[in-house]
Amino acid sequence: MITAVTQSGSRASLLTAHRVPYCVTAHHGSASWNGNKLRFYSTEKPATIDYQGIQTLIKDKNAEYYLIDVREPNELLQGAIPTAKNIPLSQFMTAWSMSEEDFEDTFGYEKPSPNANIIVYCQAGIRSSRAASYLGELGYKGVQNYIGSWADYAEQSKSKA
């Protein structure tokens, strides 16, 4: 039996027979073997944040966080949450594989470190949930999903005005 550890600290046990893996079990998720590479899939739900939490961060001038909108550019015409940066989900995997320099040249801000406080949102919380899970798989520790996302933010902001 071989135990592998992912960047995020998840462990997987790989049983082998004649050097060919035939069973994969994982702690904090599942894993699969494609013949030459072990892939891990997290089943843990990312942490979430709500409208009040977003408001608190936006108002705190000393808060250190990255608020990332994963909607596509044409969706941004509806508006965006103040302080948000955009990395469309369609570019997400490419973005996080970039060097720090290329990331900053492409998106206009510093690439977050794996320990940074990162909040992701989209239109309704589905794409941002995928984005949060992906960042978790890459080893990012402080990732939160604004589950209500833009639809919730726009509605609550309208009702509070």
Rank of each mutant, 00 (worst) to 15 (best):
G35S: 09
L77T: 15
G79Q: 11
E72P: 02
Y66L: 06
D102G: 05
M93T: 13
W33N: 01
Y65T: 04
S30N: 14
V20C: 09
T83Y: 05
D60Y: 13
A63D: 08
E75A: 11
I81F: 06
I54C: 05
A80Y: 12
E64K: 15
F40S: 04
D60Q: 12
Q52T: 12
S32N: 07
Q52C: 01
T83N: 08
V24I: 15
T48K: 07
Q55T: 07
P88A: 09
H18R: 14
E104R: 15
R19N: 15
T83I: 03
W96T: 09
E101I: 09
N86F: 11
T25H: 06
Y51G: 05
Q91P: 00
M93H: 11
S97F: 02
S99E: 05
L89I: 13
L77E: 15
N62P: 00
I81D: 04
E100A: 15
T16H: 06
I81E: 08
S32D: 08
E72W: 03
S97Y: 04
T25D: 06
V24D: 00
D102Q: 13
H27E: 10
E44G: 00
S30K: 13
M98D: 00
G79M: 11
A47F: 05
W96Y: 15
G79D: 13
T43C: 06
L89F: 15
N36E: 11
S90A: 12
S32T: 11
H18A: 14
T56R: 14
Y22P: 00
Y22L: 06
